[in-house]
Design a binder for these strands. Sequence first.
DNA 1: CTGTTAGCGCGTTCAT
DNA 2: ATGAACGCGCTAACAG
Lengths: 337, 337
Amino acid sequence: MKRHQVTIIDIAKELNLSKSTVSRALTGHKSVKPETRQAVLELAEKLDYQRNMLAISLITKKTNTIGIIVPEFKSSYFPTAIIGAQEVASKAGYTTVICQSDERYETEVANTRVMLANQVDGVLVSITKETLNYDHLKIFQRKGIPIVFFNRVCDEMEVPKVIVDDYDGAYRAVNYLIESGRKRIAHLAGPFSLKISEKRINGYKAALRKHNVPYDEELLISYDLNIEKVKIYVTHLLNLDNPPDAIFAVNDPTAIEAIQVIRKRGLRVPEDIAVVGFSNDFVSGLIDPPLTTVSQPVREIGRTAAQLLIDQINREVADWKTIIKVLKTELVIRKSS
Amino acid sequence: MKRHQVTIIDIAKELNLSKSTVSRALTGHKSVKPETRQAVLELAEKLDYQRNMLAISLITKKTNTIGIIVPEFKSSYFPTAIIGAQEVASKAGYTTVICQSDERYETEVANTRVMLANQVDGVLVSITKETLNYDHLKIFQRKGIPIVFFNRVCDEMEVPKVIVDDYDGAYRAVNYLIESGRKRIAHLAGPFSLKISEKRINGYKAALRKHNVPYDEELLISYDLNIEKVKIYVTHLLNLDNPPDAIFAVNDPTAIEAIQVIRKRGLRVPEDIAVVGFSNDFVSGLIDPPLTTVSQPVREIGRTAAQLLIDQINREVADWKTIIKVLKTELVIRKSS
DNA sequence: CTGTTAGCGCGTTCAT
DNA sequence: ATGAACGCGCTAACAG
């Protein structure tokens, strides 16, 4: 556990120079004699010297680190978004610290503490389905640390957000179902605590309205995204006196699980019931039947969010923007509908 | 960009105490008068005070951070392993810094620098398919920073490793294919640079040998895991004068892609050609036909690796162990074979 | 129980 | 072109 770190002092001694000179040589200051710099650089290389970012950050008050807090890693959504964010961040010289909150509010709060303690320069956040109180996130604002939401956003905070047009995506999905002859379309929705659920519900309702399909409360089920419960809800829907002939699911895992349940009941997809998902997860094209779904530019969402965050970091607090970027979705029609 | 951080001094002044007392109160030292501690804690809470881990780490030379370097995020494998690792790490009070190297050697080297500069207490590594030189990883050892490999390990470094019994998994998969009547079994293998490829190839060959099935060079194709190339190789195999009646793929994405190619040629899986994968990715049970595959305890791998790493961190360098944990695989038989 | 002093490794003045 | 001195926020001796 006792390790010796190579420091500037070590190489200063070795070369009979002052620490400041070595420091300057290392940081690429011009006012250093070329041969001195050369010698320093060589020795540093030879000794595997690495600048201690902790010390530097302590002085500069900048860690060149951005934090990313996401609710889960189960679907391909967040890993993909993170890749996008990292692309932009690392190009701009930022390291990323990733925390996943496991869809639990308490964990999310703990994660924010970690971020704060590690002095991140900014955070990218997608909240859990449990998050109703935002005090832990507002701390960032108060401390002058920019925050950008993506996907699961917090409405009561005026900060940049990156979302997709959930309303429009849902609208188009349901519209398509109706136009292909479906009469009773159920919606397995997400929890009301998430804005995305609400918007998708609104899109769903709007599409029904447009075609004068009466909205039937019985066919709208909002649930907590705990995938195990899908079975209960789908079974319930199938047992209705007047069961649906289509299900629009709030996301792909829900849709996929719904298909399994439907098939176990001996019904066919899409002949008996059409199923449409949301997000176009990596798996969706591979399952049987391939899933019709609303595709989101996930990687682009990550990239955009990271870019907005870095822009904020480079701005004075007074100049912070509250842009909301709304990216487009696209309906991908496959065999499940 | 100019933010004011709340420091111990701020709260010391406010309370007319010395910094050390405040510090002690904050760190839960016993030798502090209860009411003093109470006052400190309350004010800290009120001011959103967060201990500056940078400063603490600088002194204690411990960041309570472990780095994780993985090659990719495309399949569910690494995200799942990371969740396992985080479970253990966070329980032990460690934050994780995750870097993905995008299967590129250069990126991996850059990532190690990031880890070093940020003074991680230890690293978990799974190398890229390009990594042939390990100097960048040996630096950790030289600096006394423990390293633990998982999945994609480095043979020439004597450090803890967590792997599965690749040889055995491959052996059982191929054995099963032969016993279910397949005569010509091809193997779409990974690059030779990865130990896991080699071991799976050996398992493949051993199973053939056991059943006196002659090994045919033509049926063994090692490729770089660039999924786009699967089409070429599978097409090639199908065009052979004596084409295979089964394909054992080095991983699930390869197997899944192979199935798509086979079907596009108008052949049936498993009737014409059986396909078996490796890893049991999340998708594998959902695709059509559900994939027979060798399942790995991925999350457990992550947990084990993290635990080994933390053990190393808590040991003196001289006491470092070089345990190699070999976890068991399991053949999951589904419809593709 | 509390205060004082000395650094951790480094960038940054201000000198020379 | 280089050195000396100071301080980032904090913990860890050492004193009472």
